[in-house]
Design a protein around this nucleic acid. Structure first.
Lengths: 344, 344
DNA sequence: TTGACAAATGATAGCGCTAACATTAGTGTT
DNA sequence: AACACTAATGTTAGCGCTATCATTTGTCAA
């Protein structure tokens, strides 16, 4: 059981190790941080002392003295969202076995909240920062300009990253999906969108672009909400869409959650997918591609983006300026499946 | 664009704020950390100065001086898993607007890795720790015994928490679900399990208990894997089960992902759910309850557990010993739906 | 052997904050 | 008015580490 006090227990410090090893504190510090600067004899003595005392450095003291911590900040707009869950996973996998930590900040799609989180994170003297997209506030952008660490903006692409960026073109992805629906012979295209953040907006624009070019744009067949995306929301939006325009014959969903909702609601209403209704999702999550029928979607390299973003940061920490391609477009891939495979 | 250097930029310090406000540094510190100890006049002056300078405290310096950081460690076995994603969300929601941070450690279902993460986390002098379950290594348990901070073990229940605990009885939950299947008239019950961690094992035991008591246990109708859970894995396990025992008429799935996989594979094979096959999931995630047919599941308060765990920690930080119920069973709820609503 | 240089090590100071104690201002009692 | 007390504020020292510069030791050419 536990005492009610939570008193800190003393751990050995650098000087303890130094005394044990018969060297100065700074030599111990160097043995840990840059062993190549220390003679083999000293190194062995110090390593033995560290092992004997069970020493581990205090990250707070280190951060204070060196003005840089081992924390890498990751600012995401949502933790619920599949997209960011995958990114987070990639980042964590990439950080494993390094001396760094990840600290996640959830700014809930609020640029202002992002700005404040950024301010707080910067006070920690992070070793690196990963941000979502390019839509920071002016003040946040200003802070980023002279951020004291490598920085990657992820998920989106843009002409002017603050430092580095990796993502893909959401508008073009939606264009590709929309063209696919037209090619499959659908003519009355609808669009469902939840949580209309900047990237969702870009997809929406892409959809409208292609519809307009094909002379098939009907704004009544567009239903969006600012509320979070979910399967139930997909059902609700689909119901709303049917109420307005029952003649819709294909739907581009802003993400796979919505697409699943549309599919299950269609099954309930006995609407045949893909013959009466084509459904295309976005992101290509595991569940959607295992539905019956399997849902057509745009595969996006979310995990990979997280993984590569963290690698860019680690590379820059090791050797500033070493990352050659500082603005990477990793692309996307339309994966046609049964849910849009209409019989001609 | 960016210079290649990442030089740290000076931010205002406590003394800067103190000078601006015409008070001493410690008064500024107190205004931030315990405003009730400061007169209203000083407080207003200090707050104005903070706002003017855009000051935010340096957590490293604070941690070093006070021997306790504002970091709360959260050790989870997986980031992919829906279960822990919801817990994480609850924790983040509970921490919002406080001065604390969450730092997640992913130990990938390895107790040894958990132990090493714990060691590293403890060096940060965390303000609190949240662990998953009770299955720590001996060494980890020893470290926990004299952890210098409040500590909550979550998701499971057990007789002897290291400090505090909140969770529910997985074995009993599985018993309840299994009884439900029997009550619905199913007689040849199967069990599918992936990622058999200690809590999955407990559910598995619960299933076997009830089947055995009812004289309906057939080990051939149990298929498990150590690989991660997913919808595709649900399909695979279901296929394996059908290959062994095609007569199975109901399946308890270790979680909803598997259940969805079973359902979609059943649809592919034209097996009627619930009449030919009953399906019961676990966790009651949004997608499962929106399938067609809707999937019966055991609702577990994952978000709530995260939320309450963090609150227990915050309460203990504010007032050690103030949390009265230090070992909470938050229960579960069977939610019968169409996927087990067999016609009699 | 000497000097020139690099490699290895150390002494000192200080990062920005808070704990602990010291002092001053304010409030009420007799 | 003098005293006792609390509330508010300040002074001092130091948390554990690393940057900086100074010193010592080792290495090699002339």
């Amino acid at each position: 059981m536990k005492k009610g006090s939570y008193s800190p227990t003393a751990s050995p410090t650098l000087s303890d190790v130094a005394r044990e090893a018969g060297v100065s504190a700074i030599t111990v510090s160097r043995t840990i941080r840059s062993p190549e600067k220390v003679s083999k004899a000293s190194r062995l003595k110090v390593e033995a002392a560290i092992a004997k005392l069970g020493y581990a450095p205090d990250p707070a003291a280190s951060a204070l003295a060196s003005k840089t911590s081992t924390t890498i900040g990751l600012l995401v707009p949502s933790l619920t969202n599949n997209v960011f869950a995958d990114v987070v996973r990639g980042v964590y996998d990439g950080i494993e076995e390094t001396r760094f930590f990840v600290q996640i900040g959830n700014f809930r799609y609020s640029a202002l909240k992002e700005q404040e989180l950024l301010r707080v994170f910067l006070r920690q003297k992070p070793a690196g920062l990963i941000l979502s997209g390019f839509d920071q506030t002016q003040e946040a952008t200003r802070m980023l300009k002279n951020a004291p660490c490598p920085l990657v903006q992820i998920m989106d692409i843009g002409p002017q990253p603050a430092d580095m960026a990796i993502g893909f073109d959401h508008k073009e992805a939606a264009r590709t999906a929309t063209r696919h629906l037209l090619e499959q012979g659908y003519t009355k295209l609808g669009f469902l969108g939840a949580r209309m953040d900047p990237r969702s907006q870009a997809r929406y624009e892409g959809f409208k672009d292609v519809c307009k070019d094909a002379g098939k744009l009907d704004e009544k067949r567009i239903v969006t909400t600012l509320q979070p995306s979910s399967v139930s929301m997909g059902r609700q939006l689909f119901e709303a869409l049917l109420a307005k325009t029952p003649d819709v014959d294909a739907i581009l969903c802003n993400n796979d959650d919505l697409a699943i909702g549309v599919l299950t609601e269609a099954q309930r209403r006995n609407i045949q997918v893909p013959d009466d209704l084509g459904i295309c999702g976005f992101n290509d999550i595991d569940i959607a591609r295992n539905m019956m029928p399997e849902i057509t979607s745009v595969a996006t390299p979310r995990y990979d983006i997280g993984r590569r973003a963290i690698q860019m940061i680690l590379d820059e920490i090791a050797e500033p300026g070493s990352v050659a391609d500082r603005n990477q477009d990793v692309g996307f891939e339309l994966v046609p499946r049964q849910s849009t495979a209409r019989r001609r």
